[in-house]
Amino acid sequence: MAKPKVGVWSFTGCEGCQVEMLNCPEIMDLLDKVKVMRFPILEERDEKGKYDICFVEGAITTKEEEEKLKDVRKRTNFLVALGTCATYGGIPSIKNFLDEKKVEKTVYRNTSYLHSEKAEPLEKFIKVDYNMRGCPPDKDEFVRVFKDLLLEKKPKEPDFPVCVECRKKENPCLLEQGHFCLGPVTHGGCDAVCPSNEVMCHGCRGPLKDANIKREIEIFEKKGATSEDLKRILIKFAGEKFRTCDL
């Protein structure tokens, strides 16, 4: 049987997702089982032809990236959005909520030859087959999804909040302690790595489909969050999604 053709694509982001892929202890064995068509952090080889599986990291910020992404989608059987920039726009998407011209001027004096669109998730432009959330994504999840795909099994996205794993680890509840922890409304599957290190959840894996964000906001307000605080907390990794309800 021919080895599945796998490609990795990188748009606007920090490339930490690709680094995390390489950090998986079993990565070399996994790559051995497929035909790596392209993996930008390691090499840029053939860009043409069909792919069985593609991992796409980074947000889409320009028209060229959008076109490229659509082209990749057409040639890919199973497409994984890798990491928070790809699934939600990530940290770069904070600028979507700011005045674009003002933002550009803050960092560049002459903006005449500079053009930047909003930082958008892949799903805004194409159908995504699996959203691998997280900044960075979880190594175990990556390995599980990769193996599932090799076995031609459809991988399942975690659909429980961060609190599930957090409680299992018997961590003290940061929300109860007065921190504006987004654990209750955020996709789990990260083994609650931040709360386990006494850092509140910043929602890097985005809100669960049925998350009661409104209720979470009420709790934050009761604990003294101002509307400015709420904006800062909700507009970070997945601003567009967390801000579904009006502040």
Binding site: T61, P92, I94, K95, T106, K236
Partner: peptide
Amino acid sequence: ESPRFFEAIVVGRSYEE
């Protein structure tokens, strides 16, 4: 490379984050 405007997006943010 597409600019990500970090110097601008930290404006208005707390020292804690």
